[in-house]
Structures are given as structure tokens and as C-alpha cells.
């Protein structure tokens, strides 16, 4: 039986919601391995921040890369070997601050990879500064006057960029598991925002009570107009509105790897560039 653990003892704070994400991801990969996939068919990439420690606790090939560079690194891995199943992990700082330039373009490239954002609305590992999804008024040592800017709505952004798989879930094992399973079935760039409180630096605004399931609410995930409407319900700023979770939008379009003869050939022959003798 495959074991996905490493020798490293997690250093996340006790009770951190990142444990939920880790377990959810592990369960999904574990199931994949049980159904015949091999561990070296997967590659994971994490950035810098609390989220990134997931690389240390998940014994799968890949790289814990630079801050903000998860997406181009995932992209490069897919270019190097289009047969790999690539999962990228970022925090909200990693994805929306340092790495925003890549996020926008990755949406255009539509490489077949899955991207999980651990959004706790705060830079936690640097002890609590505001990120692009932090609400107005948030105070910390570097923002004693309170955060002044409107937060970004990543769901709206991804929908506006025509991303073919846009989801948001709360950080519990089951939700992460369910959505990642769906994402792996989807062929293309899958964007999964996982909202989570940070126990130390960003208090829970009652996420658990505020969330509701889009799928249970019979949301039509093939309808972009409906998806955009749903994305508007929570603006990452107010602490009272309901928060829709689940898959906002899903529609396949041609992936990057299929647009290039050279990559298609590698895929068809189940090869990577490394196998090409010159």
C-alpha cells in the first residue's frame, strides 16, 4: 500500500484548517493510487506561505517553489511532461499578490492542471499582514490605520477570464475531497478557492454558518451569467452575507497541450521530453 506521508511532523498551528486541506488532498490522491494510478504520475507545486508546507507533508514529486511562481512552474512541468497530473497550491498572497500576473495568463493558457488556493485572507507566515482578499478595516502591525482597499473577488476574476472550472469550498476534508475529485475529472485549468479562517491572524467571521452549497441550491454550473451572479453574493469584504460554495462554472475548452503538435505527440506516446533521444 502506498503511503503519502513524509518523515516531517507538521508545524501548522494546532487545529489549522490547512490540515483539512492536506487530508482532503491526500484522500483523493490515495484513491487515485488505489485505482491503479502511480505516484510518479503526479506532481505537486507549492509556493511560499503557510499553505506551502503542504509540500513537506505530502510525499509526491514536485517542487516547493518561489513565492508567487506556482503557476509558471506547474506550466513548465506540464510542458516538460504533459502526461503528469499536476496540482498547484498557493495562498492568497501567493496567488493574488505576488503571483497575480501569472494567474491571469494561466487562465488564458488553459493547461490541464488543478490549482488550489488556501485563502485565509491574510499573510499568516509573516505574522498577519493584509492580502488582496483582506476586508476593509482589517488592522495589523503594518496596517495600524486599517486596510483601506476593496478586496479582490477571485471567483469573479476567474469567471471573467473564461476559466472553465471555477469552484470555492470551505476548508473541510469532505468539501476539498469532493471538489478535487471533480476537478481531476475535468480536462483543463481548474481553479479551486478554499476559504479558511486563520486561527491566529484572521478571525472566523462565521464561515461555517454562512456557506451554502451551490449544487444543493440547484445552481446551473453551465450558465456563466448565473455563475457571475453567484460570485457577487460574497465580496470578501462583508461579514454577514451568505457564501455560495461548490462549482460556480464548468465548461471544457481546448487545452494548451492539444494545441501544439509536439506536445500532442508526447501525450499520445505517453512520453516526456526526457525520453526523446537526440
Amino acid at each position: 500500500m502506498e503511503n503519502l506521508n513524509t518523515m516531517i511532523k507538521p508545524t501548522w498551528c494546532p487545529g489549522c484548517f490547512n490540515f483539512q486541506i492536506l487530508t482532503g488532498v491526500k484522500n483523493v490522491v490515495f484513491n487515485e493510487l488505489n485505482s491503479g494510478k502511480k505516484r510518479d504520475e503526479f506532481a505537486i507545486v507549492s509556493g511560499i506561505g503557510c499553505h506551502a508546507k503542504i509540500f513537506d507533508y505530502l510525499n509526491i514529486n514536485g517542487i516547493n517553489t518561489l513565492h508567487g511562481r506556482v503557476l509558471p512552474t506547474c506550466f513548465g512541468i506540464k510542458i516538460g511532461n504533459p502526461n503528469l497530473k499536476v496540482i498547484g497550491f498557493s495562498g492568497d498572497g501567493d496567488a493574488y499578490a505576488e503571483g497575480m500576473e501569472h494567474l491571469v495568463h494561466m487562465a488564458r493558457y488553459n493547461v490541464d492542471m488543478k490549482y488550489i488556493i488556501h485563502d485565509n485572507q491574510v499573510f499568516a507566515l509573516t505574522t498577519g499582514q493584509s492580502t488582496p482578499t483582506t476586508e476593509i478595516g482589517f488592522k495589523d502591525k503594518t496596517n495600524p490605520l486599517g486596510a483601506k482597499l476593496n478586496p479582490l473577488n477571485p471567483i469573479k476574476l476567474m469567471l471573467s477570464l473564461n476559466v472553465g472550472f471555477v469552484a470555492r469550498v470551505f476548508a473541510d476534508v469532505k468539501s476539498v475531497e469532493d471538489v478535487l475529485k471533480e476537478a481531476l475529472k475535468y480536462k483543463g485549468f481548474a481553479f479551486i478557492e478554499v476559504i479558511q479562517p486563520c486561527l491566529i491572524f484572521h478571525q472566523d467571521t462565521g464561515f461555517k454558518e454562512r456557506i451554502y452549497s451551490l449544487q444543493e441550491a440547484k445552481h446551473d454550473k453551465t450558465n456563466i451569467t448565473e455563475a457571475l451572479k453567484k460570485a457577487e453574493e460574497f465580496d470578501y469584504n462583508d461579514s454577514k452575507s451568505k457564501i455560495p460554495t461548490g462549482i460556480f462554472y464548468q465548461k471544457e475548452r481546448e487545452i494548451f497541450e492539444d494545441k501544439f503538435e509536439q506536445l500532442k505527440k508526447l501525450k499520445d506516446k505517453k512520453m516526456s521530453w526526457k525520453d526523446i533521444k537526440r
Binding site: I63, T65, L71, G76, G80, H105, S272, K274
Partner: peptide
Amino acid sequence: IAVFNAAIGSAITGAK
């Protein structure tokens, strides 16, 4: 930035 990081991604899969 994307260029060099993508090259790192492809390089670790073994591609020159």
C-alpha cells in the same frame, strides 16, 4: 519571470 520559472518546471521533468 514566468519564462525562467517555466524552464525550471520543465527542467525538473528532465527536459533540456
